[in-house]
Design a protein around this nucleic acid. Structure first.
Lengths: 66, 66
DNA sequence: CATTTCTGTAAAGCAACCTTTACATATATC
DNA sequence: GATATATGTAAAGGTTGCTTTACAGAAATG
């Protein structure tokens, strides 16, 4: 599952640590999700999308079926 | 995390077993998600939304922050 | 060059998701 | 009443998500 977290985060000038704090998760979780090591849970995906102010589909992309 | 799977499924006349087959998961998983015992993974949430032809936010609702 | 900030990754452990097998109940149709 | 379909739930086990602690390299700043 691809995502645009790095891009959205960069546009706002937030470090991984800052985003992690806003999301109430560890910095390692942000890094792991951003680098594609694993996908976030659905509740966390909602928080991520809401913090960036966009729909979930604007952050995550399963190509066509992952 | 609340969801409208039961409603969307009912509108289409699909049983839990039929939906499970379309999603490629077990019937028990569909039941557990539908009855709120746990949330689907993000990839599964994408498949669910796509099968119903609606955005993820139209199926799932975390109230305001779960 | 020294220090700080940011990022990437690893290991160990707990919690959540999802599976298979199995049983119980309800409703419908014969 | 018997059979079939639909739903709800449980237990055990594997996989994935997320944590804490820890180390290392890259990039900025003094």
């Amino acid at each position: 599952m691809k995502n645009k977290i790095k891009q959205l985060r960069g546009e706002r000038g937030w470090s991984q640590a800052v985003l992690a704090e806003k999301l109430d998760v560890s910095r390692q979780s942000v890094n792991a999700i951003e680098t594609g090591r694993y996908d976030p849970s659905l509740p966390l995906a909602f928080r991520i999308a809401r913090i960036f102010g966009v729909p979930i589909e604007a952050v995550f992309d399963d190509g066509d079926g992952a």
